[in-house]
Amino acid sequence: MDLQLKGKSVIVTGGASNIGREIVLGFAAEGANITIGDIDSQQADEVSKEALERGASSVQVAKTDVTDLAQVERLFTKAAESYGKIDVLVNNVGWDKLMYFTETTPEFWQRIIQVNYVGVLNCTHAALKLMIPARQGAIISISSDASRQGEPREAVYGGTKAAVNSFMKTIAKENGRYGIRCNVVCPGVTVPETAQEVGGSSMWAQTGEMFTTEQFEKIAKALPLRKLGRPRDIAGAVAFLASPVAGHITGQVLSVSGGYSMIG
């Protein structure tokens, strides 16, 4: 199916590693013009080369800390100047470290809130300033099934992702009149297949700190589909929701988690 994304101007935050990387490559295969906003510009440069090989019309990288509004605004200015518009924003940046809430500190809470929620606010605000006058656009935010189920050792992270879900629904209601669609994709445990898929700043850089091999096996066995999620699983859902093919879908929260959560 042609998703009608060829030539579209797409911004992907956190596009250098894991899910973000595969999202970039998915848009590349559709012939999009892509701007990668990532704090790890070196890894993003590698992804941009691969994206061009996959068929992207054009790819550029803007080193961006999404918690810094000034840097975010520069990212959007660069994309708009290069491609004339912003058709799609994918709020993909996320970060966590698994700990029970009693083991965490206020400093940890603030980092989680800044990266996972304030970053979405910053990028969405910048996107709307360009999309509203154009009266078109699609925004997809990457959340987590931890926001829907509650998950031990992810109390603060799950809380910020639940905030993203609610925020995006509100933004969808406020801006549908401008032709702007806003949706959320909630991955479950989604594991990069090779070390080359992650940069040094990724929370997956040291996989053993997140999950052991035995834990991965238990997670897979507990899922209805009996397999772990991979970045490509998320990328397909994002490309669909970003495309005109999904033109009557907005304000939705979609779990892509092998059946971990089934919410009607």
Results as ranks from 00 to 15, higher is better:
N122E: 05
T77W: 09
A79D: 02
F167D: 00
R135N: 15
Q71E: 15
Y100T: 08
T250Y: 06
L228F: 10
G199D: 05
L25W: 12
V185K: 03
I171P: 03
V189M: 13
M99R: 12
A80I: 07
I34Y: 00
P192Q: 14
M210V: 05
I263V: 08
A127L: 11
I140Q: 12
G84N: 04
F27Y: 15
G258N: 07
I263C: 00
F216E: 06
E50F: 04
V238P: 04
L25Q: 14
V184I: 14
A239D: 02
V253Q: 01
S257E: 04
V66Y: 04
G264W: 02
R21E: 07
I86K: 06
Q43A: 05
L5S: 11
V10C: 00
N116T: 14
V198R: 04
D68G: 04
E22M: 05
K63S: 14
N33F: 03
G188L: 01
A220D: 11
A205R: 11
A222F: 05
G229A: 08
D2F: 11
E107W: 03
M203L: 07
R21C: 05
G150D: 11
N92S: 02
D40F: 01
R153N: 09
V10S: 03
K221T: 03
Y157L: 08
G31I: 09
M1K: 05
V66D: 01
D65Q: 08
T250L: 10
K161V: 09
R54P: 05
R230D: 06
Y117N: 09
G264E: 03
I139F: 13
